[in-house]
Nucleic acid binder design. Structure first.
Lengths: 337, 337
DNA sequence: TTGTATGCGTTATCAA
DNA sequence: TTGATAACGCATACAA
């Protein structure tokens, strides 16, 4: 980082640093010719204003932090693409933090972000609703706005963007029932997370509406480890013999496919599967997978839009909106009669 | 960002800022008790050293920039996971820049990075080899190390991590030939990019070895737009009737699947397909897809390791290594006889 | 329109 | 072991 700095550039031009500085932010008054002269020389000497010095001086970072559980997940990827589009239009950069669903990591990241590294935070939470969220309150006192998307904490007041999980789950379960399933498994990770709860409620209510009994053993609580999931699902399918499975998370549908392929369980004849999923190639699976697909890109886009409202108008003006976007249920071979 | 700063914290403790500062970097001598007292108070007052001030003072950013064409691509995702692991072990953060294969974006990003925002750069290039790369030379003069991975510029001297593309392509083509194909299409994006060239060469040489003619029309140059690709491939398959297809990029295999499904071309009976791909669910496709899978995670990991060598030992000591990792050819149904 | 001087929050040097 | 002070590179209030 042995860069040329504003002083050297100024000297090379026989100008003061303030004039040079002005050339780089277009608001201030400055002679057009000098400005061009400065920019030309800057190009030649390969000068760029130091980002950290500017941020320190201006007390902002032109950066937003995005905290998500993981990247290896089409939903989050598409959402991030949505965020990124808004951010880059505003001249902001994105700093990505991955929690891998570890609550402690989330706390550490948030605490880290108190140092002014980011002007705002967009987060899809990792922890369980039950845990302590005081670390989030502190953000507000520092004027760092926060927006939730998809996975939220209900006890924290912040703008949020979600999709209609309850309705979608209800519809998905009902779809399985109408396709002839009467023993429907619900595959879930983190039952206690708000999002898991919503989806589970939709499942339960659909069962009830159609007079199907709710069976505890058919709610299969999985993990983030593919191999573990394989074992869990393999056992569960053999033991409880569901004829329908509703996966609250894409990877559980994938794991189910592997189990079925290996165990000779025919989809959809023996077991019909539907899943929350943002997989673009769901139609190409064997058999093609019925999905509830969330508007991931739009959710990211909206979340970023909300965040910038807070950033631009101040956190007090923050719109405590709860935007709910609609997911789509797409029926394919995996739930065919 | 109305944070408490080190001064206020010092005053609250009746200490000087230097002592407080020392408490936060463990090297300096400091009384254990005072240190604990400081840290306790910091927690209480929710103090975090300002990242930008530290960076400015220390003249480094503890951040590495990663420039890739896109995120919606399993290869880059996994590679980034590899990078991230190394970086986070070193206490570094990752700043992600997406070029969407636009050369101008790449130039803009690189120029941006001259301002000391990152201590090093890891890049998978976007542009064509033919174009101008002077903007990269300038990095060196600023002591910002650069490492290439996967997609490189041959005319720039920098450490690089690639996979054995030529050999893999040769093997993949040969596999198709041995499975009975004699009209093998090569599906590619950006023929001119170094990586496209390597893969094409492997394809050509394998044809030659087996005395199959090279036909220009069977090299199908595609784009990044899925719909365009669909049209291109649909036309090409109908017009030239290949009985084998080797996709240099995952998304072209996906597009081919869609075309075949719609056009009633049976895989593998009518057309055998193999592809470079990092898709975890290749086995679940209909039919399961034969792949050459690059060690994406390891490539990212290695690239980051190389970069940190340059960062830690200075750019002059940079190991001009060219690390080549081996891809794996996995035969599945899509190329069955 | 341009220049001077000050401070953003930190860390390093030096002295106590 | 701790404190005073200067400097990192820049942007702004104010003066010219």
């Amino acid at each position: 980082m042995e860069s040329i700095n504003i002083k050297q550039l100024a000297k090379a031009l026989n100008l003061s640093t303030s004039t040079v500085s002005r050339a780089f932010r277009n608001n201030s008054d400055i002679n057009k010719e000098t400005k061009e002269r400065i920019l030309a020389m800057a190009r030649e000497l390969n000068y760029q204003p130091n980002h950290y010095a500017s941020n320190l001086r201006e007390r902002k970072s032109k950066t937003i932090a995005v905290i998500v559980p993981e990247l290896a997940n089409n939903f989050f990827l598409q959402a991030i693409n949505g965020l990124e589009q808004v951010a880059s239009e505003k001249g902001y950069h994105i700093l990505i933090y991955l929690t891998y669903d570890k609550y402690e990591k989330e706390v550490a990241f948030i605490n880290d972000l108190h140092n002014g590294r980011a002007d705002g935070i967009i987060m899809s939470v990792s922890g369980e609703s039950a845990s302590e969220h005081r670390y989030l309150h502190r953000l507000k006192s520092k004027n760092i706005p926060l927006v939730f998307f998809d996975r939220i904490y209900e006890d924290i007041e912040a703008p949020r963007v979600t999709s209609n999980d309850y309705e979608s789950s209800f519809a998905a379960t009902e779809h399985l029932i109408k396709s002839g399933c009467d023993r429907i498994a619900f595959l879930v990770i983190h039952k206690n997370l708000s999002i898991g709860k919503m989806r589970m409620q939709g499942y339960q209510d659909a069962l009830q509406k159609h007079r199907l009994p709710y069976r505890d053993e058919l709610v299969i609580d999985c993990s983030n480890d593919p191999q573990k999931n394989y074992r869990i699902l393999n056992q569960a399918f053999k033991k409880w013999k569901p004829n329908g499975a509703f996966a609250a998370v894409e990877r559980l549908a994938i794991a189910s496919y592997y189990v079925c392929h290996d165990a000779g369980i025919a989809i959809p004849q023996d077991l019909k599967i539907i899943s929350f999923s943002s997989l673009e190639i769901a139609p190409l699976l064997n058999p093609s997978l019925s999905t509830i697909s969330q508007p991931a890109f739009a959710m990211g886009y909206q979340a970023a839009t909300l965040l910038f409202q807070s950033i631009e108008n101040g956190i007090e003006q923050a719109p405590m909106e709860h935007i709910v976007l609609q997911s789509k249920l797409i029926k394919r071979q995996s739930t065919a009669k």
